[in-house]
Design a protein around this nucleic acid. Structure first.
Length: 585
RNA sequence: GCGCCCGUAGCUCAGUCGGAUAGAGCAUCGGCCUUCUAAGCCGAGGGUCGCAGGUUCGAUUCCUGCCGGGCGCGCCA
């Protein structure tokens, strides 16, 4: 697996050395694992290190140190690009490369630009990514926001990794929840018209139901009262559904989330797909009738028990819709189905994978990413959220308060399967301390610097035109090394379906940039500007004055070239998360 | 009761396949703006990686048991 152009080169050199040592009869393994090359924890241990000798030692019956010696000796002889190769106990290979080996990283970023970090490991395989899929029975809340941010980031990540991704929203516009919505709205509407109708027991109580009823009253007047209660309820349901779905689409658009397809559950009924899917299962002898109901024999696929697909009263269950829906996804020719679900649905995963298997596909054709709950805190107090009680904070409200960028970044800072606490008061009060600003600020700082350079007639040079050996400061070298690991990061995040690591990478990169920025100057002083001495902390932490670094024209050129590449990677990373990279802040 | 997830610094959390002295942000404390954006930088303190075993050269990471927290076990969705 590639983790960047330099690491790849070292890994290849190790692999080559292993084969040569084997030919010399000093190693005996049939096959060697592809060597793992990573950044050592401490800079003194070199630029890159590998534990390959340790992992081979046992099989070879030699001590890790001896294996490391064999590899190192061969590599020293064969590879011109190492400054030196050290061995550290118990058998680490620590590589220090010639400084100019790293310069290819900058060229790479420059030539690939917005595509730097992309790869083709997906081989164009078609992925259906289904997410949010909230019932259109109310506005989206925080939990949906987390799923939305995750889905969008995953779509972008997988595309960057070479997959052909389609984003889809499954609209649960059939079944009991829709009936409850209709009845709730009708009851409110009737009340506005002076009639009292029993409010459904499990109905929706949110204030938005009242607003929907008012909207319908304004639109229809008292016309609905002339219909039968059943017809009026149905009409209320349709109108409410249209408005709520439109609101959901708007909320998502405002949050920067789009979908290629909106798939209606109700369409599964009208097109006969439920029937088709169940027929298919029947042919495979995977459905049976018992107790007046129809069952899917999901225990065949390691589910705890068989599940009802058609109830005694003849209605299909939600599972039946879902089976048909996934049947349809599979027949649409996708190579990989990814669903993002709330973690409270985890018990549902085995039976859906069972359904996939039932249709003759490997069960991992469907992968479910679970998203844990978001607890909303307001001033340290937990806000209980439930659509039924109407007690919840909407995604829209949160995005208005803290901004869509900050909200998305916040959602993507943690692994999706851990519980997330989001304190609104804190997010509002300390929004400037939100890590998203730290990263965005790094980008804006660079944009500003490059802008000023242009204003002073200093065009950003092409990497090949500058003397990269001038980038000798540790802060500069760290930036270059960090840029080199971006492609590998994207690959591993895409494979693990874990975009949160991108946000950590960006925070590190921003940190390196800010450290560089404080310590070094890029542009020459303006004419007549008196350069004060720099202030640096001395050994005891007290400030000491140090002479200000002199920036020659060629150093300026080299640094501009470097920073342009840093800016590109910050931009690419933020874009993957669906967060904007501002030119000014 | 059974199943899934989580348990790492005061708080919120990172920590690919087992690797070297376990990291970051916030909070606390001490410094740094006449300069290209201080929404920034530098430094200090802070840890039994829930507990106990096991596997091995080596375990926060893998296995088993236990404790604590969350969720799920409908002819609801």
């Amino acid at each position: 697996m590639s983790v960047g152009i330099v690491q790849e080169r070292v890994a290849a050199a190790i692999a080559e050395a292993l084969e040569i040592v084997k030919k010399q009869g000093l190693l005996t393994s049939e096959m060697f694992p592809s060597p793992v090359v990573e950044f050592p924890k401490r800079e003194e241990w070199g630029d890159l290190s590998s534990n390959v000798a340790m992992s081979l030692a046992k099989k070879e019956g030699k001590s890790p140190r001896v294996v490391a010696e064999l590899i190192a000796e061969q590599m020293r002889a064969a590879c011109p690009f190492f400054e030196h190769i050290d061995i550290a106990p118990p058998g680490f290979l620590n590589f220090t490369l010639r400084r100019d080996c790293w310069d290819t990283v900058l060229t790479e970023v420059e030539t690939q630009g917005a595509c730097y970090g992309n790869s083709s490991i997906g081989h164009g395989r078609r992925v259906l990514l289904e997410f949010v899929s909230a019932n259109p029975t109310g506005p989206l809340h925080m939990g949906h926001g987390r799923g939305a941010a995750l889905g969008e980031a995953l779509a972008r990540l997988l595309r960057a990794a070479g997959y052909a991704v389609e984003r889809e929203y499954y609209i649960n516009d059939a079944g009991r929840q829709m009936k409850l919505l209709a009845a709730s709205v009708y009851a409110r509407y009737a009340a506005l018209e002076g009639q009292t109708i029993a409010f459904p027991e499990d109905g929706y109580h949110g204030a938005y139901i009242q607003e929907l009823a008012q909207g319908i009253q304004e639109q229809m007047g008292s016309n609905l009262l002339s219909l039968s209660p059943e017809e009026a309820t149905a009409r209320c349901g349709e109108l409410a559904y249209e408005k709520l779905l439109a609101a959901i689409k708007q909320d998502l658009a405002d949050f920067g989330i789009t979908f290629e397809t909106w798939y209606s559950e109700a369409s599964l009924f009208t097109t006969g797909k439920i029937h088709d899917a169940l027929n298919d299962l029947e042919k495979r002898d995977l459905v049976f009738k018992a107790d007046g109901a129809t069952w899917f024999r999901s225990t065949t696929f390691k589910d705890e028990k068989d599940r009802v697909v058609c109830k005694q009263d003849g209605d299909y269950t939600y599972l039946a819709s879902d089976i048909a829906y996934h049947y349809d996804k599979l027949t649409r020719g996708f190579d990989w189905l990814i669903n993002i679900w709330g973690a409270d649905h985890h018990g549902y995963v085995p039976r859906m994978q069972g359904a996939v298997e039932a249709f003759g596909y490997p069960k991992d054709r469907l992968q479910v990413v679970l998203v844990q709950m978001v607890s909303l805190l307001r001033g340290g107090q937990k806000v209980e959220m439930s659509k039924r009680s109407g007690e919840f904070v909407t995604l829209q409200e949160v995005a208005d308060e803290v901004g869509a960028d900050a909200a998305k970044f916040f959602f993507l800072m943690r692994r999706s399967d851990t519980h997330l606490e989001f304190d609104l008061e804190l997010a509002k009060k300390q929004s400037s301390e939100n890590p998203v600003y730290y990263v965005q600020y790094a980008h804006a700082r660079l944009a500003s610097l490059l802008r000023i350079a242009e204003e002073r007639g200093l065009t950003v040079p092409v990497v090949s035109d500058v003397d990269l050996s001038l980038l000798a400061a540790p802060e500069e070298f760290r930036l270059i090394k960090h840029l080199s690991s971006f492609p590998g990061l994207i690959e591993s995040c895409a494979q693990a379906l874990e975009p949160h690591r991108i946000s950590f990478y960006l925070q590190e990169l921003a940190g390196l940039l800010h450290a560089f920025y404080y310590k070094h100057r890029v542009l020459p002083p303006k004419e007549g500007e008196v350069q004060a001495d720099a202030v640096e902390p001395g050994p005891d932490g007290e400030a000491v004055e140090a002479p200000r670094e002199v920036v020659s024209p060629s150093v300026t050129q080299s640094r501009l070239a470097l920073l342009q590449q840093v800016k590109t990677v910050l931009h690419n990373g933020l874009t993957l998360l669906g967060v904007s990279a501002p030119e000014k802040m």
